[in-house]
Nucleic acid binder design. Structure first.
Lengths: 342, 342
DNA sequence: ACCGATATTGACAGCGCTACCAGCACCTTG
DNA sequence: CAAGGTGCTGGTAGCGCTGTCAATATCGGT
């Protein structure tokens, strides 16, 4: 009846154990809790594994142990420079560790996010990194009931699911406006694209700052659900000028829009900053080398990814960070595009 | 002695089979080869699975079947816009399919690539997407001996490992130079960063075109191993001007450098294109909205990723593409920055 | 020398699924 | 009506590893 599914020269843990003269379970322990082995056996297993070129079978390990060494990462976009930096941080932190990454793209949809979450959790990930704090109620419930470290990234807020690392988009935006006000600007326009939750909070920060200064005017705000681009920055800026021709500054929710606005100014022969001040958000690399250099709000994206991944690892290794919520802050980079008019 | 490791309410294939009134193996077949079931059982298993909310255990599946449904993707950079577009194509194509993606970052090192390759292949991926055609001899040997579809992306060349999709960087570069020559430029500089194999081939194309026109001069070439950035574009352009003050055009191996060169021209009050023509490479979104608009070589990055993933899937489903090497071509986008001087 | 505590090692079964073969019913063909 | 498909279903074992407990070795203290 049953025929062995013979696997010829394959190197399994059994082979390593045999060569090392120990039982398979001891060899197994070498890879998981080496400190539990006597020094002699540890060395024997190590050299046997190296000699045979043993590579553990992760599927078997996952099946037997009921868990994986995969960290799931959920981000809304693959093309956005911001997330590219975050991802690089995550990959750098996890590179060389035992953990690997499963990346999925929610496309800014929390329903898609929920679907992907279920998919992930069914495979029992070691940890989870999710973007933002606006999950569906179901997503939240799922994550709260699951027993693995979870880090919410990009922003901070009350009641983290588990851990959190980011900064306040509201405060960052308000600080940018405060800077423009300090430069003497009064009619400060707002350009927003995509309008995901974090951009929305930047709008809130803008509005709060403008209201505090008694300068808010709905005609100053131009937003769209369309994804951001440099070209869109020009278009939105043109729309803004049509609604409020008397603006003396514009705050853009990201640097692409800011660059687009700058180009639109060029096209219209409007002097930056003398006629119009421009401030962007994120401080991408090009902001400091454009002409004029563009002011922006620097955010620590690479660090965010790296530290989020590190928080996951530390928790898994039993060294849970003392503080579950980390505020990475921001800094307003004041450059030529918003220099005080002389 | 042996105690059952009881798993209480967990839904396994057995539970689904029981509810559907079939054997586990029949239920299993429903998920792999539904067409092999009778219509009645198919419906019964389907509704049972849905009722119980069954989610297959991928680790068990992988262990039993000796293969996974993971497509490994090896790219050199996570922050480069070019790869972000490619990745988006890959994710889009695989989204909704049964396959998932394992992404790894080689950081432009073929040794790192080889290491990651071994890691991947030990887990028996369903397919593989790797960047470029310059692998180590060992990497190549490993991939040739492995039995899964492999697509090399970004460029095309002789002797594909399996399949290939991309375009000729040499030809694309030569076409860009031909365009500049046609615009009347004679002293055409070359700006290169990172100098990975594909950039090197763009340099080769430049050199061939310049030699054909008897215009090549080594002083026109400025390259560096440093990773690209807009700021670097300005720096390299300044270096170029120092070496060859009489240039009338500059070809940049990517758009970041081109934008940086444009800004440097602004800083030096050099008129573009009247004094200096600029052409970039990749045709990122911002190229068409800068002032002046920037000429570039459009490459089909999203399509490359999408089609590469599709080629993998098609092969796995037994519909191997007739043509293993796909040339996606390119097009020279002629814009203001290289318009014929009047 | 004896006792209990601690470090090390091993035996066994089982994680949840699928490969393999066998069996049966129903056809088709000559 | 026999022979040989073809389509569908099921039984059995096993993929390679680890959880659980048991067994043995080692050691300090009295």
């Amino acid at each position: 009846m049953a025929r062995k599914r013979i696997t010829p020269g394959k190197i399994r843990l059994t082979e390593v154990a045999k060569l090392a003269g120990v039982s398979p379970i001891t060899a197994s322990r070498f890879f998981r809790t080496p400190e539990a082995l006597s020094v002699g056996k540890r060395a024997r297993v190590e050299s046997a594994a190296k000699e045979l070129g043993y590579v553990p079978n992760l599927a078997a390990r996952a099946l037997a142990s009921q868990r994986t060494e995969v960290v799931g990462v959920l981000i809304p976009s693959l093309t956005n420079n911001v997330f590219a930096d975050v991802l690089r941080g995550i990959y750098d932190a996890l590179d060389g560790s035992r953990y690997s990454i499963q990346l999925a793209n929610t496309r800014y949809s929390i329903l898609q996010e929920e679907r992907l979450l279920r998919l992930f959790l069914a495979q029992k990930p070691a940890g989870l990194i999710v973007t933002g704090i606006n999950q569906t109620a179901d997503s939240r419930a799922i994550m709260e009931s699951v027993d693995c470290p979870i880090v919410q990234i990009m922003e901070i807020g009350p009641s983290p699911i588990d851990m959190m690392i980011g900064f306040s988009h509201f405060d960052a935006s308000r600080a940018a406006i405060a800077h423009l006000l300090a430069q003497g600007c009064r009619r400060i326009g707002f350009l927003g694209a995509r309008m995901d939750p974090r951009v929305q909070r930047r709008l809130d920060g803008y509005q709060a700052a403008m209201n505090d200064a008694a300068l808010f005017d709905p005609r100053l705000v131009v937003t769209t659900a369309v994804p951001t681009s440099v070209t869109l920055g020009g278009t939105l800026f043109a729309d803004l000028l049509a609604k409020a021709p008397d603006i003396d500054a514009v705050f853009c929710v990201n640097d692409d829009l800011a660059l687009g606005a700058l180009f639109e100014c060029k096209r219209r022969h409007m002097a930056v900053p003398d006629q119009i001040a421009i401030v962007g958000f994120n401080d991408l690399e090009f902001m400091s080398s454009s002409v004029p250099t563009l002011s922006s709000v620097r955010t620590n994206r690479y660090e965010m990814g790296r530290d989020a991944a590190t928080m996951v690892i530390e928790t898994l290794e039993g060294r849970r960070p003392a503080e579950p919520v980390v505020d990475l802050g921001f800094s307003v980079m004041e450059r030529q595009s918003s220099a005080r008019r002389s």
